[in-house]
């Protein structure tokens, strides 16, 4: 069958729809990114941090909180984007038939999906920014490198939003999201250099962890927060960008296969 792909700036209309819904409950949506770091900082800074003491990360000595706080931002970016394009998009697509309604207008399926991905990325940028304010107040973000953090959040948000959308295009029902979450998202959450430096792992596990997009997002966010930008970070940027492009194309193909009959 012939496939005509048309993408115009009309995806913004889908993004606007989601923004409108978000604004109805923004007070609730703002709470987790503001409160979460406070809880974590209390638990890890006071509880765990004193147990760990300073350790070597890269070529510098670092306390646990400045090490961990940026990872918390990276994790927030991942969760916000992934959950928006997995559960939330699936509900809109499958239960609410919102996509069907949109496809009765001049919007194309590609524009709908891009709008959804862009929105999920936006949501994670908002959450990351709120969190950055809190941890900045705690003195855990150094500037001016910290100013680059929102840009990194955009890239991370787009990447994880696309990954979520790939799963949405293939899961038979909403319960099936448990699989990618337990086999992919949770291992990433734990083993992407988030809670401890990757050097602590055996070399094979380090290599494996380098495949995780969260590893690269964490490296980038941490470099921004610690004011330690290095040329080698280019590879993390390239990796995330490639991952984003590949998964967004997969998501578009998958959704086309799923919805256009």
């Amino acid at each position: 069958m012939k496939r005509v792909v048309t993408i115009s700036r009309r995806w913004v209309r889908v993004w606007q729809r989601n923004l409108k819904v978000y604004r109805q409950t923004w007070k609730i949506s703002f709470l987790p990114p503001l409160l979460e770091p406070i809880f974590y900082l209390a638990a890890f800074g006071i509880g765990l941090g004193s147990l760990v003491g300073d350790f070597t990360y890269g070529s510098r000595s670092i306390a646990y909180l400045p090490f961990f706080a940026p990872a918390l931002v990276a994790i927030t970016i991942m969760y916000n984007a992934f959950f928006e394009t997995s559960y939330a998009s699936f509900v809109r697509m499958y239960y609410q038939k919102t996509f069907d309604a949109m496809l009765a207008t001049p919007l194309t399926l590609e524009e709908v999906i891009i709008g959804e991905i862009a929105w999920a990325a936006t949501k994670s940028v908002i959450a990351a920014f709120l969190m950055q304010i809190v941890i900045s107040l705690a003195g855990l973000v150094q500037y001016p490198a910290g100013l680059l953090l929102p840009a990194v959040a955009v890239l991370g948000g787009l990447t994880f939003a696309s990954i979520g959308m790939v799963f949405t295009s293939i899961v038979p029902n909403i319960e099936t999201f448990n699989l990618p979450i337990f086999l992919f998202v949770t291992p990433m959450f734990l083993f992407s250099g988030t809670f401890f430096p990757l050097q602590n792992l055996p070399i094979w596990a380090q290599r494996l962890a380098c495949l995780f997009p969260l590893t690269h997002l964490t490296l980038l966010v941490r470099a921004c927060a610690l004011n330690s930008l290095a040329p080698s970070l280019i590879w993390s940027l390239v990796y995330l960008l490639t991952f984003f492009l590949a998964t967004s194309l997969l998501a578009l193909r998958g959704m086309h296969k799923r919805l256009i009959k």
């Binding site: 729809r17 409108k20 109805q24 609410q96 038939k97 919102t98 069907d100 309604a101 009765a104």
Partner: peptide, 13 residues
């Protein structure tokens, strides 16, 4: 203008 068979009004709005 299209009025589809299934109810697909936007329940979030």
């Amino acid at each position: 203008g299209i009025c589809q068979q299934e109810d697909n009004l936007d329940p979030d709005l």
